[in-house]
């Protein structure tokens, strides 16, 4: 059976969708189709991938406009008609389906790393580590970053960590043996206030991490508790103290 594909080709100077037709087999995923086109028709078609098993998060792209992992999207799950494959839009294009995601790595450096106390006893209960473990499932595909309107539409890359790094911060904050408070970091550098919980990130997460409900909302609550506690504010006004 033959299928049609429309793939984004080009670089920042010039790019357009190009049409391809190849024979497809049962069980094929989008990444298989891209590789087949690369091997048979366009040897320099640029695509980033590693494991082809949904474990590394390298092959993120927008298939029929939806941010997905190409290796986990079966052709049979898509509607009939040409399959459109484009790069993630929240990051600068390098070539074809490959974008420059290095900005993400810069955000990670700003987050205070895991800091246990010196006399830690390394005992933890399973129920206490489960929340952190949910966040540590993240494979850094950056699809949540791609779909987040704060980054995608408003381009606030300089003031906003994005969902991935709220999840990262939450995984550290909810580690039972960590000792650091990252609330100020989230508010001042992470711009967590800019998120208005539309849950787009949760919807696209291939690891089914409940990003909004389990990571972002609890972290927003911590910011609110620390900075906007109404009683503290009232107390501060009453006694004219400087309250953060």
């Amino acid at each position: 059976m033959n299928s049609k594909f429309r793939i984004y080709r080009g670089n920042q100077q010039k790019a357009e969708y190009k049409d391809y037709e190849i024979e497809v087999q049962e069980g094929m995923v989008v990444l298989d189709a891209v590789h087949k086109i690369q091997a048979e028709l366009e040897p320099d078609l640029a695509v980033r991938w590693n494991c082809k098993a949904g474990k590394c998060g390298s092959c993120s792209a927008e298939v029929n406009g939806k941010p997905v992992l190409m290796c986990m999207t079966r052709l049979s799950s898509l509607p009939e008609g040409p399959v459109q494959i484009g790069p993630m839009k929240a990051f600068p294009l390098i070539k074809d389906l490959v974008t420059d995601v290095s900005w993400n790595y810069e955000q990670n450096k700003k987050i205070t790393p895991f800091t246990p106390s010196k006399d830690t006893v390394w005992k933890m209960q399973q129920r206490d580590v489960e929340r952190a473990q949910e966040f540590r499932k993240c494979i850094e595909c950056f699809l949540c970053q791609d779909v987040c309107h704060v980054l995608r539409t408003h381009k606030k890359h300089d003031q906003f960590f994005g969902p991935r790094f709220f999840v990262r911060t939450a995984s550290l904050d909810m580690h039972p043996l960590d000792t650091v408070n990252r609330t100020e970091l989230l508010k001042e550098k992470g711009g967590i206030g800019l998120c208005n919980i539309t849950k787009c990130c949760t919807e696209v997460c291939p690891e089914d991490i409940n990003i909004t409900d389990n990571a972002i909302i609890p972290m927003k609550e911590r910011v609110a508790d620390q900075y906007y506690d109404p009683i503290k504010t009232f107390w501060g006004k009453l006694f004219k103290k400087n309250v953060k």
Binding site: F114, T120, W122, K123, M124, Q133, H175
Partner: peptide, 20 residues
């Protein structure tokens, strides 16, 4: 392995709270 835990790895636990 214990050192990896000190670097921040979160392993599955036994009932005693050790690494499963």
């Amino acid at each position: 392995v214990r050192e990896l835990e000190e670097f921040g790895a979160v392993f599955d636990r036994t009932e005693d709270g050790d690494i499963h």
